[in-house]
Design a protein around this nucleic acid. Sequence first.
DNA 1: TGAGAGTGCAAACAGTGTTCGCGTTTCTGA
DNA 2: TCAGAAACGCGAACACTGTTTGCACTCTCA
Lengths: 219, 219
Amino acid sequence: MGKIKSAGLKELRRTGAAGLSLREVAKTAGISPSGMYRYVDGRDGLLELLISDGFEAFGSAIDEAIKKADNDLLSRLEAIAFTYRRWALANPDRFGLILGTPVPGFHARADGPTVSSVFRFSEPMVRVVAAAYGAGELVGLGADVAQDAKVPLDPTTFLPESLNELLARGWSRIHGLVSLELYGHLAWGDFNVERLLRAEMRSIMDELSNASPANVKRK
Amino acid sequence: MGKIKSAGLKELRRTGAAGLSLREVAKTAGISPSGMYRYVDGRDGLLELLISDGFEAFGSAIDEAIKKADNDLLSRLEAIAFTYRRWALANPDRFGLILGTPVPGFHARADGPTVSSVFRFSEPMVRVVAAAYGAGELVGLGADVAQDAKVPLDPTTFLPESLNELLARGWSRIHGLVSLELYGHLAWGDFNVERLLRAEMRSIMDELSNASPANVKRK
DNA sequence: TGAGAGTGCAAACAGTGTTCGCGTTTCTGA
DNA sequence: TCAGAAACGCGAACACTGTTTGCACTCTCA
């Protein structure tokens, strides 16, 4: 079983996501093509295995980066963004598999591991923002609602809407830059993408500050 | 030839980008599989045809949206963002084909139509920002460099670097939000994505203003 | 009347995912 | 201990894919 996963990752690196061949994976795993069906439900099952594994690996990488970063929100946001980018550049096929164009003919089952794995991946990002929110760093965003909230796992339950939107916008900024760079659509500008990411995270922080009542009063 | 393109688009809608079958396209076009090779260089050539067509269609849609929008930069940026989103949602396969995960085994030739088509698509966005820049709306960004610049086609030639970076960041914000929504990664929040896009464009505008010397002096 | 270019396609080849039936091995429980 | 069940593994076959090859069948124009 672990043999299949590692063989799948190897093949993934070689041929890319949608070009992944079950027969080739079987060959490098030392199993016959039909034998694969004992462990994995066809090609879709193989993809599902690699997808949930990818979410797990991506989430762990971001987890560790957060731990190593300084304790303030900006440092953590930058750590997330840089790790997001580095992981995507180092694992382009896995990145495309879990966050890119859906593989044709493949549809994740609603009860499958794919869906729940998304939370494993997005949870660290939510946690960082929610921690800052709980610590009172983000005043002016409905702080009365959840001042004493525990670290939330499900953003829809605990975070006020405006914070949720900032989270989505922050993630999408990272994702947009990294996707465009990864697929070569930023080649026209010779950009320092880390610099762009830093600017984007800085900008999100500024918006948080400007929205706070303290700053509004100062105006 | 047009028969092949329309049949390709039809199949693309049915099976998605990487699942596209040359044999099926041939069948719906009323040609034999081998006959396809008279008009198109195999499957890669078929994809190249559809990709350049997609860039053209996407670019035209944005062009028209800009024409219909009000003359100020914010209205135009919103028009671009909303059209970007609407077109992607209406043509998910074409969107994935031109801006998503590269199709496995397919590599665009450096001299092929794919590369040049990128400019046909990105040109409207560049033009809008450059026009505002030329009109003096964006002061404080090295306005001395290209105050009298003509409407540029190649951003690397005419735009100062800081403006170039803002363009990349603006595009990536749109692209990030639309990509995440399109592939179901924003399903955890019940977001009004148009609202998010409006906020992102507004935020880019604010950054432009804050960077201008006029506002700096006012502080 | 040709010659040549363009058009079209059936046949074949290697590759793919998947199913089926058949053995072999391993584990389990009485 | 030892039969039965469960798991493991695979070869053959089927329907699909992209691609190449060779052979026709039009036209055009000199």
